[in-house]
Write a protein that binds this DNA or RNA. Sequence first.
DNA 1: GACTTGACTAGAC
DNA 2: AGTCTAGCCAAGT
Length: 114
Amino acid sequence: MRQRVISVADEGPSFTERVYTVVHGIPAGRVATYGQIAEMAGRPRAARQVGYAMHRCPANLPWHRVVNAQGRLSLPADSSSGLAQRRLLEAEGVVFIGGRIDLAIHGLGSSAGD
DNA sequence: GACTTGACTAGAC
DNA sequence: AGTCTAGCCAAGT
C-alpha cells in the first residue's frame, strides 16, 4: 500500500518554511524577486506563495530584500512597511532609480555591488 | 476535500 | 506607460 505513512520527518518543512530559508540566504545589498525565490525554494511558479509567506513577516527574516519582478516594492509606498523596506534596502547599499531597483545590479548572481 | 484569498508574473490591449 | 486577464501555487476556512 502506497498509503505513505505520515510522519513529521516525511512531511518536512513546508514550502513557506523553505522560502524563509531562501530569503534569509539573500546577502545584504542585493534583492531577489518572488519568482526567483520561489524557484530557489523548489516551486518556480509559486511566486504568489512567496509573497504570502512574506505576509507573515517572521522575525529575523530579511523580507525587505524581496521585491517584485519589476524591481519595485510590492507594498504600498505609503505604508509603514513599504517605507521601512526602502529605508532598509538603501541602508544596505541598494540604489533606487526612479523609485525602483535595478535588478541587473542588485539582483542575485550580480557581482556588482560587492 | 472544495472554495477563497493573496507582498506574483507574463502577455494582451 | 498604465490597465485587464489568465495562469500559477500553497495556506486558511
